[in-house]
Simulated assay, not measured.
Amino acid sequence: MKPSVRLPGRRLDGWTALAAASLAFFLLAAIFGPLLSHYSTGEISDQSLACPSPSHWMGTDIHGRDLLTRLLCGARISFLVGFFGALVSLLIGSAYGAFAGYAGGKVDRLLMQLVDLLYSLPTLIFVIVLIALLEAPLRKTLIAWQLTSLLPYSRIFLLFLALGFVEWLTMARVVRSRVLVLKEALFVQAARVLGRSPFGILRYHILPHLLGIVAVYLTLTVPTVILAESFLSFLGLGVEPPSASLGTLLADGAQAINPIRTAWWLLVFPSGMLAWTLWALNALGDKLRDLLDPSSR
């Protein structure tokens, strides 16, 4: 019998399993929870600031709206912004980093100097300016095309693009450093000798070897985008009412705290879900990085 070999870091530990189960539960709850709820996200009642009870498991807000339903709808929007913003970051960063690394020389130095310049800019201010510049033209375009039903989602679409445009810098650096190593590999040199075009080498020989590291940093980019969206929504610059996100719910909870009466549930439940989601995503990203690390094989 061959002796069994245990590879370090190849199995899920208890914390990683808990993170995976928590994230799966939150995703399923955000997708299907509002459909199964007895309340709608905009349903106003006379039970203003009601404490958690069997009829309202997480209480109600100042307008009598069920907090659990709003929390699930807000988590859905935050997840959408996080995943699509990370996807935009993946597309831009991978293409930029792969081109810079394979081109090399002066082109590489010029492109990386541009990345360093963008790193020096305050990202959130850039996002705010980008949203302010593009929101009015986007709304005019939707009205001109008679797509007025999409007007409430125009800010969400801009958040996809704006946060993706500022989060691709790290992805570009990571991809570029890996391409610099791969382009000197023997199989890439053989493809070059056989007459493969640079685009064909990048597409068929280099990019498949980047999937592991790209998947890791994509997992780590999602919580960064969610946190940035929550911060912008907390400041009133993100998702617009009546839509809600975790950031807008936190802002409502902060406004409900006063010396006369403290509606603690409006702050505890949204902040708890946001913190737990960010922890689960970061824990899964760290474990995925360990699993795909060649030194652990």
Score class of each variant (00 low, 15 high):
residue 160 F to P: 01
residue 297 R to S: 14
residue 166 V to Y: 02
residue 246 L to N: 07
residue 8 P to K: 13
residue 89 S to P: 05
residue 89 S to D: 06
residue 110 L to N: 01
residue 183 K to I: 02
residue 144 A to I: 00
residue 199 F to Y: 09
residue 131 I to W: 01
residue 193 V to N: 00
residue 93 G to P: 05
residue 274 L to F: 01
residue 175 V to S: 05
residue 99 F to V: 14
residue 72 L to I: 11
residue 218 L to T: 09
residue 84 F to N: 05
residue 84 F to D: 00
residue 232 L to S: 03
residue 149 S to L: 12
residue 274 L to Q: 05
residue 176 R to A: 05
residue 128 I to N: 03
residue 181 V to K: 09
residue 149 S to D: 13
residue 70 R to H: 08
residue 222 V to W: 02
residue 198 P to E: 09
residue 17 A to Y: 05
residue 175 V to L: 06
residue 285 G to V: 04
residue 103 A to W: 06
residue 193 V to Y: 05
residue 164 G to Y: 00
residue 218 L to C: 11
residue 36 L to E: 03
residue 110 L to P: 00
residue 271 S to Y: 11
residue 138 L to Y: 06
residue 175 V to W: 02
residue 54 P to L: 12
residue 112 M to S: 10
residue 214 V to I: 15
residue 185 A to N: 09
residue 204 Y to G: 00
residue 269 F to P: 01
residue 40 S to W: 03
residue 203 R to E: 04
residue 72 L to K: 03
residue 191 A to M: 11
residue 229 E to P: 07
residue 221 T to W: 02
residue 282 N to H: 13
residue 222 V to C: 03
residue 156 I to H: 06
residue 155 R to M: 14
residue 187 F to P: 03
residue 190 A to W: 00
residue 186 L to I: 11
residue 264 W to I: 13
residue 225 V to A: 09
residue 107 V to D: 00
residue 231 F to I: 06
residue 43 E to W: 01
residue 2 K to G: 07
residue 134 L to H: 02
residue 296 S to F: 10
residue 157 F to D: 02
residue 179 V to K: 02
residue 61 D to G: 09
residue 27 L to Q: 03
residue 280 A to S: 15
residue 28 L to S: 14
residue 179 V to M: 08
residue 255 Q to H: 13
residue 18 L to P: 01
residue 263 A to I: 07
residue 149 S to C: 01
residue 106 K to W: 12
residue 269 F to Y: 15
residue 131 I to T: 04
residue 189 Q to Y: 07
residue 160 F to H: 06
residue 235 L to Q: 12
residue 187 F to G: 08
residue 217 Y to F: 14
residue 174 V to E: 01
residue 27 L to E: 04
residue 82 G to R: 06
residue 172 A to S: 10
residue 77 I to T: 14
residue 99 F to W: 12
residue 294 P to M: 13
residue 155 R to W: 02
residue 197 S to T: 15
residue 233 S to Q: 06
residue 156 I to Q: 07
residue 90 L to E: 01
residue 70 R to K: 13
residue 87 L to R: 01
residue 169 L to F: 08
residue 57 W to N: 04
residue 95 A to V: 14
residue 132 A to I: 01
residue 106 K to Q: 01
residue 222 V to L: 10
residue 124 L to D: 02
residue 25 F to V: 14
residue 121 L to K: 05
residue 199 F to A: 14
residue 20 A to L: 15
residue 234 F to W: 12
residue 288 L to F: 05
